[in-house]
């Protein structure tokens, strides 16, 4: 399998505070890759660096062979990376369908086609019955699914999911896991996710990278990582699986 995303030694400091330091990893095509680590480990910062929301201090990021450092978020989206936000950001005065249409208009030439694509995405995320609800009126699990549907509608090759399971009940988590697995199977999508819910990480990911204090401490399959003493000490020690 070829490498789709290549993060090489990226670093970022905020006012002298090291958020991410010399982090490297590769995500292959059609892989589901998880970033885990305790709070403040630098996971969301790493995401924001990839998505162009903030600029790297050091290191390089290549996507599908192309250097994407310094691109704006919309250009990153053009390049084929879709993202969700940890703190969900729906467009409150737009309906669910219109929210997803904004994503779908990316790469579709006309509004009618975008609408069809948006409906497909909503069906995939099992949100189609809520499509005419204003996003302001959605429940949290539905908002999380809306984030995914919207990002998916932009036709990304790589989907960045930032804690889309947080705050979901176990049954809802299982549903989301099933949806994401189906997505990969049906569309060949590559997924990079940040997740605290270990149940989902174990069920979904092919490989896991563990960050602690902005540095990489372990990488491997979920089974390897959870058996790693360094990981157990810093992270899982206080929160057993």
């Amino acid at each position: 399998m070829s490498t789709l995303l290549d993060v090489a030694g990226v670093g970022k400091s905020f006012k002298g505070l090291r958020a991410v330091h010399d982090v490297s990893f590769q995500v292959s095509e059609k892989e589901i890759f998880a970033l885990i680590g305790p709070n403040g480990a630098g996971k969301t910062t790493t995401f924001n660096l990839i998505a162009g929301a903030i600029r790297t201090d050091t290191g390089g990021i290549r996507f599908a062979g192309r250097d994407i450092v310094g691109l704006r978020p919309d250009q990153i989206c053009d390049a084929g990376i879709g993202r969700t936000f940890q703190i969900v950001m729906p467009f409150p005065d737009l309906t669910v369908l219109e929210n997803v249409m904004v994503g779908a208009l990316h790469g579709e030439t006309d509004v009618a086609a975008a609408r069809r694509r948006a409906l497909d995405c909503l069906a995939l995320l099992e949100l189609d019955t809520r499509r005419h609800v204003y996003a302001a009126n959605l429940t949290l699990p539905d908002r999380k699914r809306l984030e995914v549907a919207r990002a998916l509608a932009t036709r990304p090759r790589l989907l960045l999911l930032d804690e889309v399971m947080a705050g979901l009940r176990p049954t809802e988590t299982d549903r989301m896991v099933a949806i994401l697995k189906r997505l990969r199977a049906e569309t060949g999508l590559t997924i990079l996710l940040i997740e605290h819910v270990m149940r989902a990480v174990m069920a979904l990911s092919d490989r896991v990278l563990v960050l602690h204090h902005g540095e990489r401490i372990a990488e491997g399959t979920p089974e390897e990582v959870t058996a790693d003493p360094a990981v157990l000490e810093c992270y899982l020690g206080s929160a057993p699986v």
Binding site: A51, A53, R72, P73, D74, C77, D78, G82, R83, F85, M89, P90, F91, P92, D93, L94, V102, G103, H106, G107, R150, A151, A153, T154
Partner: peptide
């Protein structure tokens, strides 16, 4: 409604 989210969806 939300410039940051719009930008992430490819809106210039």
């Amino acid at each position: 409604d939300n410039p940051q989210a719009a930008e992430a969806l490819g809106v210039n």
